[in-house]
Nucleic acid binder design. Structure first.
Ligand SMILES: [Mn+2]
Ligand SMILES: [Mn+2]
Ligand SMILES: [Zn+2]
Ligand SMILES: [Zn+2]
Lengths: 136, 136
DNA sequence: TCCGGATATTAGACAAAGTCCAGATCCGTG
DNA sequence: CACGGATCTGGACTTTGTCTAATATCCGGA
C-alpha cells in the first residue's frame, strides 16, 4: 500500500474529509514524502509545475487535516509550524542549526514520574523534543 | 536575596552582560515575576508608566539574555516565543486553550530509552511539553 | 438536463511577530 | 570638552498566518 494520488482519496474519505483535487495534492505531498513540512514547503511542492493551489487553501487544508487527525503539528521552530504525516506516537530530534527535523521512535522511550495533572485537565499530548547541534 | 532592580545589575554582570537601564528593567520584569513572558508582554510591562524602551531593544535584549544563558526560550505556541527566567532543567505544562504555561519540576521525571545521537551531534537540550486541555 | 444550495477555492487585504538599519544617544577615558 | 565604542531608537520591512467577499465546483432532486 503506497501513497499514490489514487490512494489519497480513500485515505481522506476514511478521515471524513471530502477528497478534492487540492486536498489530494496536499495529502500526496505529505504522505508520499513522509517528511515534516511547513505550510510554505507544501505550497511550493504543490505548485511546482504551475500555480494550482492558493495560499488560503493550503492553510485551510492543513488545518482541516489537523482537526481530522490526519496529520500532526510539530512546534519546534519559533518561525514556522511543521506538519507531520506520522500520527503514531513518536518523538522528535531537531537539529538547531540546519533546521532538520526527524522522528524518534517511541518504542523504547519511557517517560516516568510526571506529576498528576491539575484537576479537570486532560492530556492532549506529550511532546518530547531532543534539540541537538553539530559538535565543534 | 530577592530580585530588586539593584540586584539585577549584579546578575547581569555575572552573566557578562553590561547592565544598562533598559536591560535592568527587562531582567526585572522577568525575574521579579518568575513567569514565562513573551517579548510582547515584556514590552508592555517595561513601558507601563510611559514609553521607555523600544521594540528593537526588547528583542535585542531578550536575544542577548538567551545567548548569555540568563534566560531560556520555550517554544510551545506557534505564534510567539516565551522567555523563561528559570534556567535550571525543568519541563513544561501548557494549557492549550488558555495559553497558560507552567513549570514541571524535573525532580522525579525520568526519560529513558532515547536512542544514541547521530554521529558528531551533541544535545543542546531536551524539551518535554505536556499539552493539556480542560476536560469537557 | 437544469436548478439551487452547500461546500470549496481564490486573490488579496490585513494582522502579528520579529528583523534590520542608519542615525541618535550614552558613557567612560584622555 | 572631545572622542569612540557600545547601546538604543523609530520605522521600514519580511514572514507567517488569518480573514473576507466573490467565485467556482459539486451534488441531489425536479
Ligand atoms: Mn544563570
Ligand atoms: Mn507569526
Ligand atoms: Zn514526526
Ligand atoms: Zn519554565
Amino acid at each position: 500500500m503506497d501513497y499514490t494520488r489514487d490512494n489519497m482519496a480513500g485515505l481522506l474519505r476514511s478521515h471524513d474529509i471530502n477528497p478534492t483535487h487540492q486536498r489530494i495534492e496536499i495529502a500526496h505531498a505529505l504522505f508520499s514524502r513522509q517528511e515534516h513540512l511547513s505550510a510554505d514547503q507544501v505550497m511550493a511542492i504543490v505548485n511546482t509545475r504551475h500555480s494550482e493551489t492558493s495560499k488560503a487553501t493550503v492553510y485551510n487544508t492543513l488545518k482541516l487535516f489537523l482537526e481530522k487527525g490526519l496529520v500532526r503539528e510539530v512546534i519546534v521552530d519559533p518561525s514556522k509550524v511543521f506538519y507531520d504525516p506520522n500520527t503514531s506516537p513518536h518523538h522528535h530530534l531537531y537539529e538547531v542549526d540546519s533546521g532538520k527535523l526527524s522522528d524518534i521512535d517511541a518504542g523504547h522511550v519511557q517517560i516516568s514520574g510526571l506529576p498528576p495533572l491539575p484537576e479537570g485537565m486532560v492530556t492532549e499530548g506529550i511532546d518530547l523534543i531532543v534539540r541537538v547541534r553539530r559538535n565543534g
